[in-house]
């Protein structure tokens, strides 16, 4: 049932949003005026586009996340079979964590975790 289930839930999401949006597009009365379709900025006209460069700090954390997320993918299979393998798995993961912790410490020392 799993593959069919996946398709089912995907379709359910699309159907719910689709029906709601189509209903709201057809039924409610539409009006228009000069300012209605402007960008909202608490009453004053917007200055220029918002598609501009923004703080690089967000990217730094995204890159950090990428490293640790890949590491998490390695850890999931390890976590499942840890009980069967036993002591060897523990020593291996200890080495893995030490290397990873050194990486985190390096990033910490380099001020990569500091928000500016």
């Amino acid at each position: 049932m799993n593959t069919e289930g996946l398709i089912l839930f995907f379709l359910l999401g699309v159907t719910l949003v689709g029906l709601a949006v189509i209903f709201s597009g057809l039924i409610p009365q539409k009006t228009t005026n000069l300012q209605k379709h402007d960008t909202y900025e608490c009453g004053i006209p917007t200055q220029g586009s918002s598609w501009i460069q923004f703080n690089v700090g967000y990217y730094l954390f995204a890159i950090m996340f990428l490293i640790f997320d890949v590491e998490a993918i390695f850890l999931f299979p390890w976590a499942v079979v840890m009980k069967e393998i036993g002591m060897v798995a523990f020593i291996e993961i200890l080495i893995f964590f030490v290397i990873l912790g050194l990486g985190l410490l390096y990033a910490w020392k380099k001020q990569a975790l500091k928000w500016e």
């Binding site: 709601a20 949006v21 209903f23 709201s24 597009g25 039924i27 409610p28 009365q29 539409k30 009006t31 209605k36 379709h37 402007d38 960008t39 917007t46 586009s49």
Partner: peptide, 17 residues
């Protein structure tokens, strides 16, 4: 549900929807 859906002139319509 009965409210009008307002579109934004300067928005990217496809991604917005």
């Amino acid at each position: 549900l009965m409210k009008e859906l307002i579109y934004i002139k300067s928005a990217d319509q496809f991604l917005f929807n």
